[in-house]
């Protein structure tokens, strides 16, 4: 399975759309919004850094891995795999592991941009904590992508996952802080998994431990979306 996982990672990193949308966009938007529309609060560069890292990692999980399952299913590659000793559960494990590995370059590149270009300085322990925290924060969206991948045909799955990626990342305050939202929209945002995922990292920047009361909402989403993914997976195989 290791060889297959390695192939999965390598071929995804070769995909131009993946590099452009999932790696290029978050880094580009991060620099655009901090350099061009800079100023504001002093911790804006750091806050927006984790927001864009999360947005990029969500993209890797939701559209980069999860929804690609739909393509492989629709075009029959999974039939070829079914003729090997690899079981559907093993395939899913490979996809999950690939998504964990593929979110890493996005997270690291956005952080590097924050450190090198925007002069973000954080304690080493904070940098080290942010990486696994952002991994954890991405998990519900990877689960959602997998659910879509096992539910829809390829074009539909791609479209739906892109729409959800933007709706959730914008709605959850990753593109602009929820503090700037009108009251009713802020109330909606606080119910979304994307806001609660971002909150885990934002709290760390503010010097708190990551898991506050909002972490319960995050945990609820995580369990629900994992269950959804598991159900769709079992239905499909």
């Amino acid at each position: 399975m290791g060889t297959y996982l390695l192939l999965e990672v390598r071929r995804t990193l070769r995909s131009v759309p993946f590099l452009l949308y999932t790696v290029g966009f978050p880094v580009g938007f991060y620099l655009l919004f901090t350099q061009v529309f800079g100023g504001g609060a002093s911790n804006w560069a750091a806050q927006y850094m984790v927001s864009m890292a999360l947005y990029g990692a969500m993209g890797a999980g939701l559209t980069g891995v999860g929804a690609r399952i739909a393509t492989e299913r629709t075009r029959g590659w999974t039939r070829t795999l079914a003729l090997t000793p690899l079981r559907p559960a093993g395939y899913l494990v490979i996809k999950l592991a690939a998504s964990v590995l593929l979110t890493l370059p996005v997270i690291l590149l956005v952080m590097l941009a924050g450190f090198a270009v925007n002069g973000v300085r954080l304690p080493v322990s904070t940098w080290l904590l942010l990486v696994p925290l952002l991994w954890l924060a991405t998990l519900p969206f990877t689960a959602l992508g997998i659910a879509i991948g096992y539910s829809a045909r390829d074009e539909v799955a791609n479209g739906v996952s892109i729409v959800l990626l933007f709706a959730l990342s914008i709605g959850g305050g990753l593109w602009m802080p929820v503090q700037l939202f009108p009251g009713w929209l802020a109330a909606v945002a606080k119910g979304l998994p994307s806001y609660r995922a971002g909150e885990l990292a934002w709290r760390v920047l503010d010097g708190h431990q990551p898991f506050g009361a909002g972490a319960l909402v995050f945990a609820g989403w995580l369990v629900a979306l994992l269950a959804l993914a598991g159900w769709r997976f079992r239905r499909a195989s």
């Binding site: 060889t3 192939l7 390598r10």
Partner: peptide, 23 residues
């Protein structure tokens, strides 16, 4: 079998090695 597209963005050699590793 019918309807079995190959995995895109991989070379033929990589694909063969990955499947061989599962056998």
């Amino acid at each position: 079998l019918q309807a079995g597209a190959l995995l895109p963005n991989a070379t033929v050699g990589e694909l063969l090695r990955a499947i061989a590793a599962l056998q």
